[in-house]
Design a protein around this nucleic acid. Structure first.
Length: 818
DNA sequence: GCCATGCTGCTTTTT
DNA sequence: GCAGCATGGC
């Protein structure tokens, strides 16, 4: 029956789909969940679904909203869609959660209580704003580290909590909430929003404004959500508001696509549970599993399936392929991380020379960034081309942020974060003291730093006045200029370029600034607008509050004003004539649009096209990518699974999913590599091989090095028993300064790292070595996983059946071998 | 205002 | 082991 429809379809769009993909694409307009396994054609299904809906006239472009997590995914979706049918993708709302929220808030800035020119703080900006706040309110930064406050604030927002919503149980939380409140006030005063705020404010506007909510509910008939397993609490709540639960009389349908087995972002608030909640709350009748994998040979796939089957909490899914078994998965052991890197380089050479792999089709994956160094060194020394993903991206570079800060100040003089970034950069004789005085003046006057300048006096005052005048003059001068001209002028007049030209090591930075001009240029040509027209749409330009910055409009006042400006809504239902930057009516200047672009899109990690280099990245970064050959390195207990994650059940399951993601990146060949010793935090560590290696099907593997090589005598060469002298004899006094090794993340007070002491040459005398069973007074019997360090530095990692895995300082913990 | 030195902390990351 | 930052000296 189904296959009849399948065969009879007249649309070439659907012809290339397999049956399960077809069923997903041609689902009725009702809520549905697609469980899309790795390499199962998820993006194809999403885009074909949209194309099919449009082609069969079930919806007009304006009725589509598709949301992703990364700009890359959104771009990809638009691109594929455009290749499928002639459609103006800008009429649809396709973008990241934050991108769409930005679009939404730009259109309703008044209702959201924001100035029209609101700027977006990225993570760096947010942190510096918090630091500034802490200084201003004399916060003890030892008790409340700004980083931790940032984490707290972002966490609250991701849970949809305003300061008033947070449950306060202790003084510490009370203070944090206070600071959260102050931070919010600061942001509002300065006309800036952080990433969390984009989401939360959109959510609140939908929640509190029935007109807006109804408008969008009527408009969006099909909502498609990519990577649903990565949504956090707020994002899911946002979706619920946008669409409305069954019984709320709304007509939109959500198609959620996700893979619980690839949920690897719990640490940043992702809730896999949203998948089950979605099915329940939206009474989902249609669930489809995409299990046909088009990527890998079956040895690779079976390994992935077998591994992930060790997880208890899954929705359940098994990937299959019609490709053959392929090569076995190679498992390799090295004596050290250094040797591992050496071996890798050799193997890579062979792979390219003899086996005909392209370098850019090979990936070296690792659990944590710190592991890349030794690999890079080896590759560099061997002259082997490589590219490392991660690290600073284009718009995050200091020189770029400086340039952007000037541009932002021109747009929004109240942006104190930007003001402080460049007020004395390049140096112009404005020191810390004058800035402090200015900050005091601004505080007293309750105005921005920019506005407070006029009240300053003396020499410092003159310098400040000159700075502000420069910004103001630039703003006037650049009116009507093209974006390129604006940036050129700013780079010149502010002295930024000259500053870096004069610097010995500044060549790269100058180059990057030139690249910024190029980026602006291509932004303008790509997005198709040149002059800095500041035309406002009718409804907005007639509204009195749209003149200037309406920062004094409170959110509640703004909410009321909706009834006075009904023309904000309706009439543009189809949005066919709307382009990306007119934000459904609000036409932004090219500069404003470019600044938004810069904050929301930190820039691809510039994987330069055409460059044939082996790719180095974390497993996290590899999600969504695929390669002919993949090396997963550092497969050791403590590293992968990471020691911070293996103490609790959920953590371990997430690590396993991470491993699953890593394995499923490989098309043809997969290497799994581990090392007996590894340099970490400046110490050599002796790690057992990862448990994940034991969780793979033996018949798919080929142990290139003997399976249990090397471990037997590691660390067990201790001469004289134990319990006598040496480490055991240390007096407690020597451990007075012992402290938890991993700060707040360590729940176990038994985890100690002793203060550095002169290196002792003596072999360990404690008699503890990997593999032995030991007894601890409190934890009972456990198995030693690893031992590191010597003398008072010696630590053992022990797995206690009832208390989990712990690191114990041997000079503190009383361990006896049983 | 700039540079040197010392101290701390240390998984994963997108927007 | 090493980066990133804060502090302190000139």
């Amino acid at each position: 029956m189904l296959s009849d429809t399948f065969q009879n379809t007249s649309s070439p769009l659907l012809a290339q789909l397999n049956e399960e993909q077809y069923r997903a694409v041609a689902l009725p307009a009702e809520h549905a969940l697609i469980l899309a396994g790795a390499g199962s054609g998820k993006t194809r299904v999403l885009t074909t679904r949209i194309a099919w809906l449009l082609q069969t006239s079930q919806v007009s472009p304006g009725g589509i909203l598709a949301v992703t997590f990364t700009n890359k995914a959104a771009k990809e979706m638009k691109l594929r869609l455009q290749s499928m049918l002639p459609v103006n993708v800008n009429a649809m709302w396709i973008g990241t959660f934050h991108g769409l929220c930005n679009r939404f808030l730009r259109a309703h800035y008044q209702l959201a209580g924001l100035p029209q020119t609101f700027q977006i703080l990225d993570t760096q900006d947010q942190l510096s704003a918090i630091k500034r706040l802490c200084k201003q309110f004399n916060v003890d930064e030892d008790r409340f580290p700004p980083k931790q406050l940032q984490y707290f604030i972002s966490g609250c927002k991701e849970d949809g909590q305003r300061p008033g919503d947070v449950t306060v149980r202790d003084d510490e939380t009370r203070r944090k909430v206070e600071l959260y409140q102050l931070y919010e006030e600061q942001c509002q005063r300065e006309g800036v929003v952080d990433f969390g705020e984009l989401m939360l404010r959109s959510y609140e506007l939908l929640r509190d404004n029935v007109h807006v909510r109804e408008h969008y509910r009527r408009r969006f008939r099909h909502i498609l959500v990519d990577e649903f397993q990565d949504t956090n609490k707020l994002q899911y709540a946002w979706l619920k508001l946008l669409v409305g639960l069954p019984g709320e009389g709304s007509e939109g349908a959500i198609l959620a696509v996700g893979d619980d087995d690839q949920s690897i972002y719990a640490f940043r608030g992702a809730r896999v549970g949203n998948m089950a909640d979605f099915v329940r709350e939206f009474q989902v009748q249609h669930q489809i599993k995409l299990e046909q994998n088009y990527r890998s040979y079956s040895n690779i796939l079976d390994s992935a399936n077998h591994l992930i089957s060790h997880n208890k909490t899954r929705l359940g899914k098994t990937l299959r392929t019609t490709q053959g078994a392929g090569e076995p998965v190679r498992v390799v052991e090295s004596p050290s991380d250094f040797a591992e890197a050496q071996w890798l380089v050799e193997e890579l050479r062979q792979l390219v020379k003899q086996d005909g792999f392209e370098r850019k089709e090979v990936a070296l994956l690792y659990r944590s960034n710190a592991q890349s160094r030794v690999l890079e060194t080896a590759l560099f020394n061997a002259g082997f081309p490589y590219r490392v993903y991660g690290g600073l991206r284009f718009f995050e570079r200091a020189e770029i942020k400086h340039a952007l800060a000037y541009l932002r100040l021109m747009e929004n003089p109240n942006d104190d974060t930007s003001f402080l970034r460049v007020v004395n950069f390049p140096p112009r004789g404005i020191g810390a003291r004058s800035i402090e005085q200015l900050q005091d003046a601004a505080r007293v006057a309750g105005c921005s730093l920019h506005d407070a300048v006029s009240a300053t006096t003396g020499k410092a005052g003159a310098n400040l006045a000159a700075f502000v005048a420069m910004i103001d003059v630039l703003r006037e001068q650049t009116e009507g200029m093209t974006l390129r001209e604006i940036i050129d002028l700013v780079l010149d007049k502010t002295g930024l370029v000259n500053h870096y030209r004069a610097e010995k090591e500044g060549a790269d930075r100058v180059e990057n600034l030139e690249e910024l001009v190029n980026a602006a240029e291509s932004f303008v040509t790509q997005e198709g607008f040149g002059r800095s027209a500041v035309a406002l749409p009718q409804a907005l330009s007639q509204s009195p509050a749209s003149q200037g910055l309406n920062m004094n409009v409170t959110a509640s006042e703004a909410r009321q004003s909706i009834s006075e400006s009904p023309r904000l809504f309706g009439s543009r239902e189809d949005g066919d004539d709307v382009n990306e930057f007119s934000e459904d009516g609000v036409i932004m200047s090219p500069l404003a649009a470019f600044l938004t672009h810069a904050s929301l899109e930190a820039g691809d990690n510039q994987a330069q096209a055409g460059e044939d280099a082996v790719q180095l990245m974390t497993v996290h970064a590899s999600k969504g990518l695929e390669f002919d050959a993949v090396f997963i390195t550092g497969l050791e207990e403590g590293l992968f699974p990471h020691e911070n994650a293996m103490n609790d059940f959920d953590g371990l399951e997430e690590e396993r999913r991470l491993m699953y993601v890593a394995i499923t990146r490989a098309r043809k060949r997969l290497y799994l590599s581990h090392s007996q010793t590894r340099m970490l935090h400046g110490q050599t560590r002796y790690n057992l091989k990862s448990r994940f290696l034991e969780e793979l099907p033996e018949e798919c593997l080929k142990w290139v090095t003997p399976k249990n090589a090397g471990f037997s005598n590691l660390g067990s060469s201790s001469g004289g028993g134990f319990g006598g002298g040496g480490a055991w004899g240390q007096t407690p006094a020597q451990n007075r300064h012992a402290r938890p090794a991993w700060g707040q993340s360590s729940l176990s007070t038994e985890t100690y790292k002793s203060p550095p002491l002169p290196v002792q040459k003596a072999e360990p005398e404690h008699g503890i070595s990997a593999g032995k069973n030991v007894f601890h007074n409190k934890f009972g019997e456990g198995k030693v996983l690893a031992v590191e360090g010597t003398g008072t530095d010696a630590r053992a990692q022990v797995n206690f059946p009832r208390h989990g895995v712990k690191w114990l300082a041997l000079s503190v913990a009383k361990l006896t071998v049983v």
